[in-house]
Design a protein around this nucleic acid. Structure first.
Lengths: 227, 227
DNA sequence: AAAGAGGGCTTTGTATTCAATATACGGGTT
DNA sequence: AACCCGTATATTGAATACAAAGCCCTCTTT
């Protein structure tokens, strides 16, 4: 979702959408932050109309909550919400992976390998969390691509964006990223081998571990994050 | 999703949203229909702004596709899309049901029973497909309610709205509705008994059967629907 | 006659302006 | 002093107005 999914012409609304989404996911705005339409409009140098439309889309993505006549507030991060999101992924992603592996062609295998190598390279090069996150997501997309299920992918994409906000809170991001790399390596191998059950099992573990890390992290931070 | 989920003040945008969503789900607009902003605006007696915002939301719900500078088109109904949607539900709903049953209180059980009775009453009274669809959905919501997972429910709600478009195509709607009633009865019973595995199994069958019916129906109709 | 270029018309995208609602503040009453 | 109420201000919701892109039709050219 970081890159617009369809090849729409660049419009002011989409620019504002990307800007705000980035700011929310990256943690530049934290949970509870009020997004004033006019403030954004003035900052970007546009009218409030595109800002409003962007906010509507962000609400659909679950990144903000809009209250009528009161405006948009960045969705809060809570342990309950994290569990909701990560367990939805936990059920959904392995399923899509299975569907993808049923139909995977050699090109699909290569896509996964390529996505893996990109992530590895970026990690070794010490790229920013934003870049790593994007490549991490690209890898997961590559795993799902062959399934050719736009609806399911859209659901997954939305879940991932919200999940990413929690992942960015990680205290020891480096360790998590390195661990992810190892698991990606194994996943890519299982994918290439057509070993669906092993791939699903590992993916479940991958997501469950991420969930547990996030929960632990939230408990450490305590009230600050939840507010 | 038929009734607005949060208690937002009634706004022009939300009215237009409900109107358009109804028209799409009911089949009043069929797949491929162009929705002209000004036509809707004039018809309802509002400006294009609320219409645009409603369309953006409908795109997020997967009911329309918006192409920049070309406008909104009602999403087409295809067998592939139907499989995508119904199999996503197939994975997701039983999972949420399980989570709900883990935490269900007597009030939650009563909610399910009540939703069941409402559907039964409406079916016997020969209510319209729109009403029956709404009550059918209300029953499924009741099953999921205790899970207390807003994100997951939102995903489900979106999937259901799109699934409903296919269900409305049913040739023999009556038979499907009666069959649904029987299965709802058993589901409600399993829910009350706390028999989670039986409930999940039946729900899976319930959705899988719906998927198969829909696919069969689409094949009968052939090109007309897909275009 | 077919293909391509140009221009007018239609439709969408965005800005500007007006209206309505919510919040904050201050005065008055008990 | 606490509470209620009204007004003033800030912010969002919606309408109107303007800009730009797409589409279709015609005219020209080969």
């Amino acid at each position: 979702m970081k890159a617009s999914p369809s090849i729409k012409r660049r419009t002011v609304t989409s620019s504002v959408l990307d800007l705000l989404r980035d700011r929310i996911i990256s943690g530049y705005y934290d949970g509870g932050h009020q997004i004033r339409q006019e403030a954004i409009a003035d900052e970007v140098g546009v009218s409030r109309i595109p800002v409003r439309e962007a906010l509507v889309q962000l609400e659909a993505e679950g990144l903000v909550v809009i209250h009528t006549h009161k405006g948009a507030v960045v969705a809060k991060l809570t342990p309950e919400d994290a569990v909701d999101i990560f367990e939805a992924r936990l059920i959904f992603e392995p399923f899509i992976l299975a569907k993808a592996m049923e139909k995977a062609t050699p090109e699909d295998v290569e896509r996964v390998q390529s996505a893996y190598r990109d992530y590895e390279k970026a990690l070794l090069a010490g790229e920013s969390p934003a870049i790593l996150s994007q490549l991490n997501w690209a890898f997961h997309i590559a795993l799902s691509y062959a399934a050719d299920r736009p609806r399911s992918l859209s659901v997954l994409s939305t879940l991932y964006n919200s999940a990413d906000r929690y992942l960015r809170l990680q205290i020891d991001a480096k360790a998590a990223q390195t661990k992810a790399l190892e698991e990606h390596s194994a996943l890519a191998q299982y994918f290439a081998d057509g070993n669906s059950s092993a791939a699903q099992k590992l993916l479940k573990k991958h997501i469950a571990d991420a969930r547990d890390d996030v929960i632990r992290g939230l408990q450490h931070r305590g009230a600050k994050v939840a507010s």
